[in-house]
Each structure stands twice: as C-alpha cells, then as structure tokens.
Amino acid sequence: MTAVRTSHTHAQAVDAAIELFSRQGYEQTTVEEIADVAQVSRATFFRRYRSKEDVVFADHELLLEEVVVMLAATRPDALDDGDLPEGSWDPATDPYLEVCRAARLVFDHHVGQRETSLARYRLLQQVPILRDRELVTTHRYERLFTKYLRDTLPPDRSSTVHSIAFAAGVVAVHNAMLRRWLRNPDLDLRPDLEEAFAELRRGATADLERRRDLASGAAALATTAANADGARVVVAYLEPGAGTDAVVRAVRDALT
C-alpha cells in the first residue's frame, strides 16, 4: 500500500508542477505553490524532489526503480540456488531482449500517461533547464542498460564498448519513436518500436558472431557478383580454419 500511495503522490506532484509551469511560467512558479497544489508540505517537497526541475520527472524515479527490479530478476545471481553455478550464464535469458523489454516499459509509461506526457513535452520546448534535466534522466537509463549488459552477457560475448553501443542504440530508438508519438499521439507506434528493437538485436548478434570468428582466426567473408547471364554468384574468402558455420553466415549475409 505504501508503494501505491507514493506513486499517487508522485503523480500528483508531477501533474501539479507541469500545470503550474505551463500556466504561470517556470521562473514565476514557486516551490510553495507546487507543494500546495500537490498537497504536501514545503519540507516534504524538498525531501522527495529536491528542486523544481526534479519534480517534473519524479515519475521516472519510480520507473527507474521498476526497471532495475525487472532487469535484476534475469541476472544469473538472481536464480534459485542449484539452478546454475554462481556467475554462470543462463542460456534461456537473452540480455538484449531484456533491455528492449525494459525500454518498452518506459515507452508504455509515456503512452499510458498521455496528457502528462504531452504537457511535459510542450513544457520542455519552452524551458531549456528542463531539457537538460531530461538528458540526465536519459543518461541514467543508458548507464543502467550498459551495466546490465556488461554484467549479464556471457564472457565470450561481453565487452564494454559493445554494451555501451547497444544500450545507446536502444535509448536512441526509444527516444526517436517517442518524439514521433508526442508529435502525433494518435499513432500506434508499438509495432514500429518492436521492429526497430528486433533489428538492433539482429545487428548486435551478427556483429558479435563476426568478431568471434575474427578473433579465432576462422573468419569467412563473402560477396556477390553477376555472371554474363545475370545470375548471382557468391564469392567467399576464407581464413585458414574457417568452419562451416562461419562460411554459412558469410554467404547468408552476402545474399541478404
């Protein structure tokens, strides 16, 4: 029950701040006015939100906590004793998919709070300091996703650079789709978001497979050309020791 009341209180404070900023202006609105509309004391306001710009994104504090719990449940060390050796990789878990699921949760939160999201978007266009605060929130999601990937991908697939790149890609795709929705909230962009995330996952998996082949010295590269009759011809360049899987992947990539 405490979590529900806290969530409701946060929602009240967010809505109160956005409404007052939109109507009176950011600089003209005082903390006392926001606290009064949100039905909390001035001391409680500062204990919970610290500043005027923080209260605009107070709902994301709860959402970040939810994302942390969601991702933590899929880490190997969260499994029951006896399921897997400590620190080992659970093949049933796809960390890329879990990060995308977490990003979808954030997207659904915006869509589910339609009026608040639209009002906040309009407000951010007018107040530069709030846009800066939004960037801070975005970077927190990105850092959370990066750390999860670094900690959860198996050793032969994990690298800091790769984890950073995938996390940044997920956040960038989410933000691009969200901006499209905010400009036209009648659109249903969930299918587009799903496909974009699937494309990111395919790219990440293919990149790791290529790097693993190169590292093992068993790489294959294929390209296509056309013969005199116009038929497609696949030409493969093989490193010594290239296995069948590497050749098949190279030919498949060339054909697609």
Score class of each variant (00 low, 15 high):
residue 1 M to N: 14
residue 3 A to H: 13
residue 6 T to S: 13
residue 7 S to W: 07
residue 9 T to C: 15
residue 11 A to T: 10
residue 13 A to N: 04
residue 17 A to P: 03
residue 17 A to F: 09
residue 18 I to L: 05
residue 19 E to Q: 14
residue 21 F to P: 00
residue 22 S to Y: 08
residue 24 Q to L: 13
residue 27 E to V: 09
residue 28 Q to Y: 15
residue 30 T to H: 06
residue 37 V to M: 05
residue 41 S to C: 00
residue 42 R to N: 13
residue 43 A to T: 14
residue 43 A to I: 10
residue 50 R to Y: 03
residue 51 S to C: 06
residue 52 K to E: 05
residue 53 E to Y: 06
residue 55 V to S: 07
residue 56 V to P: 00
residue 57 F to V: 03
residue 58 A to P: 02
residue 59 D to Q: 12
residue 59 D to T: 10
residue 64 L to D: 01
residue 66 E to L: 12
residue 66 E to T: 11
residue 67 V to M: 06
residue 68 V to C: 13
residue 72 A to I: 07
residue 73 A to F: 08
residue 73 A to R: 14
residue 74 T to N: 08
residue 76 P to N: 06
residue 79 L to A: 14
residue 79 L to K: 12
residue 81 D to P: 15
residue 82 G to M: 11
residue 83 D to V: 15
residue 83 D to M: 14
residue 87 G to D: 08
residue 89 W to Q: 13
residue 90 D to N: 15
residue 90 D to T: 01
residue 91 P to G: 04
residue 94 D to H: 06
residue 94 D to G: 03
residue 96 Y to W: 02
residue 96 Y to K: 05
residue 96 Y to G: 04
residue 99 V to L: 06
residue 100 C to R: 05
residue 104 R to K: 12
residue 105 L to R: 14
residue 105 L to S: 13
residue 106 V to E: 12
residue 109 H to W: 08
residue 110 H to M: 07
residue 111 V to T: 04
residue 112 G to K: 06
residue 112 G to H: 00
residue 114 R to T: 09
residue 116 T to W: 01
residue 117 S to E: 03
residue 118 L to G: 05
residue 124 L to R: 09
residue 125 Q to Y: 07
residue 129 I to V: 15
residue 135 L to V: 14
residue 137 T to H: 12
residue 140 R to M: 10
residue 141 Y to I: 00
residue 141 Y to L: 12
residue 142 E to I: 11
residue 144 L to D: 06
residue 146 T to V: 07
residue 146 T to D: 03
residue 146 T to R: 01
residue 146 T to L: 04
residue 147 K to D: 07
residue 147 K to L: 15
residue 149 L to P: 06
residue 156 D to P: 13
residue 156 D to R: 15
residue 160 T to G: 12
residue 161 V to I: 15
residue 166 F to P: 03
residue 168 A to Q: 11
residue 171 V to W: 01
residue 180 R to G: 06
residue 182 L to S: 09
residue 184 N to C: 12
residue 186 D to G: 15
residue 186 D to Y: 12
residue 189 L to H: 01
residue 190 R to L: 04
residue 192 D to P: 02
residue 193 L to T: 00
residue 195 E to H: 13
residue 196 A to F: 07
residue 196 A to K: 02
residue 197 F to Y: 09
residue 200 L to P: 02
residue 204 A to N: 01
residue 204 A to I: 03
residue 206 A to W: 07
residue 209 E to C: 04
residue 210 R to C: 05
residue 213 D to M: 10
residue 215 A to E: 09
residue 218 A to K: 12
residue 224 T to V: 08
residue 227 N to P: 00
residue 233 V to I: 11
residue 242 A to R: 04
residue 244 T to A: 09
residue 245 D to V: 13
residue 247 V to N: 03
residue 248 V to H: 08
residue 252 R to Y: 11
residue 254 A to L: 00
residue 254 A to H: 04
residue 255 L to T: 05
residue 255 L to S: 08
residue 256 T to H: 10
